[in-house]
Structures are given as C-alpha cells and as structure tokens.
Amino acid sequence: MKLDKNYWSNRYMSNETQWDAGTITTPLKDYFDQLINKESRILIPGCGNAYEAEYLFYQGFKNVYLVDLSSTPLSNFSQRCPGFPKSHLIHQDFFALDDQFDLIIEQTFFCSLLPKQRPDYARQVFNLLKENGKLVGVLFNDPLFDDRPPFGGNKEEYEVYFKPYFDFNVFEVCYNSIKPRRERELFMNLSKKS
C-alpha cells in the first residue's frame, strides 16, 4: 500500500474521511482551554482538516503550524480560515520537516501511518521538539484495521515506541472522548526527555 500524497488527496477529494469528526474533539479542546502561553510554537502534523488549528487560532494562538503530505486539506483549511498565515501551512512530508516546536499535537495522524513507521514517528517528534517540549493528543486504543488506515493498536504497543524519548505525564484511556470514540482512545501528555 502506497500512502503517498495522491492517496491522501484522493481520500479528501472523494470525502472518504471517516476519521474526521467535523470539529475539534473534546480531549484536545479541554487541553487547549488550560494553556496559558499563546506564544508557544505548536505543530499539528498530518493535520487534515485541522479543526484543532482553527480553534487555537481563534483563541489567540498565532504560532500554530500545519503540515500535511497532501495539499488538499491545507487548501480546504485556508479557505475556511482565510486569516491564518499562509506561511504556517506546510505542504511537506512530516518526516522531512526540520524545525523546532514547543508542542506537537496528535490527532489521527499516527493511525494514518503504516505501523512500521511508528518508531520513526516517535523519533521525529522527539527531534522536532524543543527542550521541555511536549507531545499531546489522542491515539486509538482499538484494533481497527491492519490492511488500511486507520491502523489500530493499544497502550502496551505504543509505550514501546515512546518510552526511549519521553517521560509520561498522562497516558490513559480518555474520560472525555466524543461518543463514537468512547473507551477507544488514549489521551497522552508526554514530555521530551533531556
């Protein structure tokens, strides 16, 4: 399976985005609502329709960056949020990105990657985070599919990828998932190891 930009562009153009909740989900909204530093550099990789970025932007966070392999969701987002800086929309492979961020947000990107890429994801997040940076977001805690995205997994598997690079602040079943994902998501708040 070749999960390249054409694959993802076709999924967006044909509205085959079953993972898309259509709005920011509760776990991330609740987390964002307690953030104080609106100058933080925030990255949302594999951003898709980026409802999280829209929410952050309208809450006054001006250093939010989106990266996606497909230009289609970036274009959709730009039309929906015309005031969002175009220079913060990065049409690039996440694994080729070379920058530094205070916070990286995970929302359905991890499950879109081939499972063999998961160790590379953990390493790349570590490399992209500044000292004391955090990886925060949700992961499916569900078998899901093994032949196409979204690919599932479980807490024990994920811990193997992240433990070499991160200290675990929170890594547990979400108490505030949206109804279709209830009991099927883990909330993570991980800090980059020194």
Results as ranks from 00 to 15, higher is better:
residue 100 Q to V: 08
residue 81 C to V: 15
residue 83 G to R: 10
residue 86 K to F: 06
residue 50 A to M: 01
residue 154 N to D: 15
residue 74 L to G: 09
residue 52 E to H: 03
residue 71 S to F: 11
residue 67 V to I: 15
residue 141 N to S: 12
residue 144 L to T: 02
residue 139 L to K: 00
residue 109 F to P: 08
residue 129 L to M: 08
residue 105 I to W: 09
residue 126 F to H: 15
residue 113 L to G: 08
residue 73 P to C: 06
residue 157 E to I: 14
residue 107 Q to G: 06
residue 100 Q to R: 15
residue 122 A to Q: 09
residue 91 H to W: 02
residue 109 F to A: 09
residue 109 F to Q: 05
residue 152 G to N: 07
residue 157 E to Q: 15
residue 93 D to Y: 03
residue 48 G to Y: 01
residue 46 G to I: 05
residue 93 D to G: 05
residue 129 L to A: 09
residue 97 L to F: 04
residue 126 F to S: 12
residue 45 P to V: 07
residue 45 P to Q: 07
residue 90 I to A: 03
residue 72 T to F: 07
residue 61 F to H: 07
residue 155 K to C: 12
residue 149 P to Y: 09
residue 95 F to R: 12
residue 138 V to F: 04
residue 78 S to K: 11
residue 53 A to K: 06
residue 159 E to W: 04
residue 142 D to E: 15
residue 59 Q to E: 09
residue 137 G to A: 05
residue 84 F to N: 01
residue 136 V to F: 10
residue 44 I to N: 02
residue 144 L to M: 14
residue 75 S to P: 01
residue 79 Q to R: 11
residue 112 S to Y: 01
residue 162 F to H: 08
residue 92 Q to K: 13
residue 151 F to Y: 14
residue 155 K to Q: 15
residue 55 Y to V: 04
residue 103 L to H: 06
residue 125 V to K: 01
residue 87 S to C: 04
residue 141 N to D: 15
residue 62 K to W: 04
residue 58 Y to E: 14
residue 150 P to R: 11
residue 126 F to C: 14
residue 117 Q to N: 13
residue 108 T to A: 13
residue 136 V to L: 10
residue 162 F to G: 02
residue 79 Q to C: 09
residue 78 S to H: 13
residue 142 D to A: 06
residue 91 H to F: 00
residue 65 Y to R: 07
residue 107 Q to A: 05
residue 132 N to A: 13
residue 145 F to A: 08
residue 147 D to K: 14
residue 152 G to M: 12
residue 51 Y to R: 01
residue 130 K to P: 05
